[in-house]
Simulated assay, not measured.
Amino acid sequence: MSVDLYPLASFEQVENTPSRLDGISAELEEDLRAYGCKLIAEAGVLLNQKQVAVATAQILFHRFWFVTSMKQFGIGDIGMGALYLASKLQECPVRMRDLINVYDILIQRTAHKRKILVSRDPHPPELKYVPMSYFGNTFYDLKDALVVSEMQILKRLGFNVNVVLPYGTLVNYLRLLGLTARDDVCRQAWGYLNDTLQTPVYALYAVPTIISAAILLTTRHCDIALPSKPPHCWWTLFDAEWEDIWSVSGYIMRLYRPRTLEEQLRPMGMISKKDVRKWLEENETS
């Protein structure tokens, strides 16, 4: 039943993702997934889009990479297509032109930020956004990429775009544990759930397990003791396994790990499939 409610990747898909079979390391794929989700979140803010649509787009984005390689499609194009599709699914549609404009801004801003990190200029220049010409190729190229991306997401996921979001269930779990009186606990647990959207856990574990991981990290950070000795373990109330909760917690905490300059620059320069293919060619010859 859980597979019907939460479409999950198979063990074979997890062990050998299409991107990994094409030579992209697990660490790089993880960074590209996270950066693609950041772009989706930033686009959602600029478009004043509802969080349910943004979260749905990020979950669909992660599912897509279990059936398709990043060598075939860019994270920018698929992120744009996922947000466009999710806005329809959640009945808060956006104009195609607005979405294209926003992603054009984000791509230019990413390139500008990357130059600043490379130059290490203590007084970097401000971004001078150059609007695209609606009679040039840029707009129509992005429009074609948006249409193709939405179609490919539907096709490769077999139109299985059902998404169960965790926010309402989180409130119920916190109420059951008697934690809703603490604003800091609710706020931090909610934040952890938003962080998980940058990881592929929604394609790997059921929602109750992911929520339990957010509660675990929150209560440990806030120094709140919950029953944890068998047979009275709080997570058993939610049919979650300790090993799975611990694994999801690891995915979340890896987002906060210190990154070298190279690790920060690498996903910024691989937004398109052309950039990914160029990187693969360079690493094959090196």
Rank of each mutant, 00 (worst) to 15 (best):
V3G: 10
D4S: 15
L5Q: 15
A9V: 15
A9T: 12
A9I: 12
Q13H: 10
V14G: 06
N16P: 08
L21H: 08
L21I: 14
G23K: 07
I24M: 03
I24A: 00
A26Y: 05
R33Y: 05
C37F: 11
C37H: 01
L39P: 02
E42F: 07
Q49T: 12
A57R: 09
L60A: 02
L60S: 08
R63Y: 04
W65N: 11
W65L: 12
T68E: 09
F73W: 14
G79Y: 04
G79R: 01
G79Q: 03
M80D: 00
Y84G: 12
A86E: 06
S87R: 04
K88F: 11
V94E: 07
M96A: 14
L99R: 02
L99Q: 06
I105H: 03
L106V: 13
L106F: 09
Q108T: 01
R109G: 08
H112G: 07
K113A: 11
I116H: 06
L117E: 14
V118E: 13
S119A: 13
R120C: 12
R120F: 03
H123L: 13
H123I: 14
L127N: 01
L127Q: 03
Y129Q: 05
Y129S: 02
M132Y: 03
G136N: 07
T138R: 05
T138W: 02
D141P: 02
K143L: 14
I153G: 02
L154A: 09
R156Q: 14
F159Y: 13
V171A: 15
L176F: 05
L176Y: 04
L176C: 13
L177P: 05
A181R: 13
D183F: 10
R187G: 08
G191C: 11
V201Q: 03
V201N: 04
Y202V: 05
A203K: 05
P208G: 05
S212T: 15
A213D: 08
T219A: 08
H221A: 15
D223Y: 04
I224L: 14
L226C: 07
P227F: 09
P230E: 06
F238M: 08
D239N: 09
I245H: 03
S249W: 01
L255G: 06
L255R: 06
R257A: 14
T260R: 08
L265P: 02
R266S: 09
P267H: 00
M268C: 11
G269K: 10
G269I: 12
M270D: 06
I271H: 09
K273V: 15
K274H: 14
D275C: 11
V276P: 09
V276K: 02
L280W: 00
L280E: 05
E284F: 09
T285V: 14
